[in-house]
């Protein structure tokens, strides 16, 4: 069966179904579940069901009422997904919200990312602000702090959290040194990894093999099995070698 391409460039709506490429450049609505090769929303778009495509790009404002499945999901405007998102490659540089769970091979978040439940990835890199309601789990978690981020739990092989270069707010206030809030911070209940390297992080428990607690950290308990380094500008209440 041949799949047709559709495009909405003024205001309009299409019914759900299987398409080739779907382009929404004005204001458009997809009524029902949609399967497409490419789904491209550059104006304001709304999918009132589940969306599945090889590639989904959002550069305006988009809302997905159901779950989203794609090989590549790239959002740079404002994008809200009410359900789960299951993608291979996920890049967001605008404001992104996922109501459910986010599963991906690769996550690159540079704007603001908000996820209601767990985030699972092979590699998770963030240089923006994120808020994760559940567990952030990845082989590699690399965070460059910008705003005040939080996750309930973080776990994986290698976890690195560094304060950003601070080209916006940070550099202006660098002379004033407003503590960890000047260049961003991370808050989590527990952080567990084999190699853990943290800065400006507040956590109740950090567990790991080799742990480095950098400046600006406030940690309740660190449990480590091989090595622990604590920076002089960090607070660690309990240190336990296991």
């Amino acid at each position: 069966m041949e799949r047709h391409n559709v495009s909405i460039s003024g205001a309009g709506k299409i019914t759900g179904g299987e398409y080739g490429d779907v382009r929404i450049a004005g204001s458009g609505r997809v009524e029902g579940d949609v399967t497409a090769e490419e789904l491209c929303i550059s104006g304001s778009g709304r999918v009132q069901g589940n969306a599945k495509a090889r590639e989904i790009t959002v550069s305006g404002s988009a809302k997905f009422a159901g779950r989203v499945e794609a090989d590549v999901l790239e959002t740079s405007g404002s994008c809200g997904i009410d359900g789960d998102a299951e993608v291979k490659e996920f890049r967001c540089s605008g404001s992104q919200r996922v109501g459910g769970k986010l599963r991906a091979h690769y996550v690159r978040a540079s704007g603001s990312l908000q996820v209601g439940q767990d985030v699972e990835a092979d590699v998770f890199t963030a240089s923006g602000k994120f808020e994760i309601g559940g567990l952030l789990s990845a082989d590699r978690v690399e965070v460059k702090l910008v705003g005040n981020s939080r996750a309930r739990e973080i776990g994986g092989e290698r976890i690195e959290v560094h304060t950003g270069s601070g080209f916006s707010l940070g550099i202006n206030l660098a002379g004033l040194r407003l503590g960890r809030f000047a260049t961003g911070s991370l808050t989590a209940e527990t952080i567990e990894g084999d190699e853990v390297d943290l800065e400006a992080t507040a956590a109740q428990i950090v567990r790991g093999k080799n742990v480095r607690i950098g400046p600006g950290c406030e940690i309740g308990t660190v449990e480590y099995s091989q090595s622990l380094q604590v920076h002089e500008e960090a607070t660690v209440r309990n240190r336990v070698k296991v």
């Binding site: 776990g155 092989e157 527990t190 567990r207 309990n238």
Partner: peptide, 29 residues
């Protein structure tokens, strides 16, 4: 390692239901 444990969890090799979160003196475990 932690890396293996979390990887196996992500792959579904260890069921979600087996992860039992409890509060202890040191916090969540």
């Amino acid at each position: 390692s932690y890396g293996q444990l979390y990887r196996w969890k992500r792959k579904g090799l260890i069921p979600e239901a087996w992860f039992i979160r409890r509060s202890t003196v040191t916090g969540q475990e």
